[in-house]
């Protein structure tokens, strides 16, 4: 079970969180023209990397904040966590 540091609450066990996918995906702006290909990429295509990866988690059974977590998908090592409004460097 992972141990995730919620930037709002501190260290918590994985079972308080739910996974939310790749954090680097940006939703296209509402009402803006977008090609089929770009839209498909946004909806469906994910890199699913082996290694370091920024992902979204929601502290569901805690503060309910969505957070960004930098995790190694192979080793589960967690390097960093950020609040929703903090930019990934």
């Amino acid at each position: 079970m992972l141990h995730i540091k919620c930037p709002h609450c501190g260290m918590r066990s994985q079972n308080e969180f739910s996974y939310g996918g790749d954090a680097s995906v940006k939703r296209p702006e509402l009402g803006k023209e977008i090609s089929n290909q770009d839209w498909d990429s946004f909806v469906y295509n994910r890199k699913s990397l082996r290694g370091k990866h920024w992902e979204l988690w929601q502290h569901l059974s805690g503060c309910r904040q969505w957070i960004k977590v930098e995790r190694d998908t192979a080793t589960h090592e967690i390097f960093n966590t950020l609040k929703a409004n903090e930019e990934i460097l």
Binding site: Q58, R64, W66, A84
Partner: peptide, 13 residues
Amino acid sequence: LSHLEYYLQLVWP
């Protein structure tokens, strides 16, 4: 609820 929170916190803060 999670869906709304997602958009409010991450997409349209």
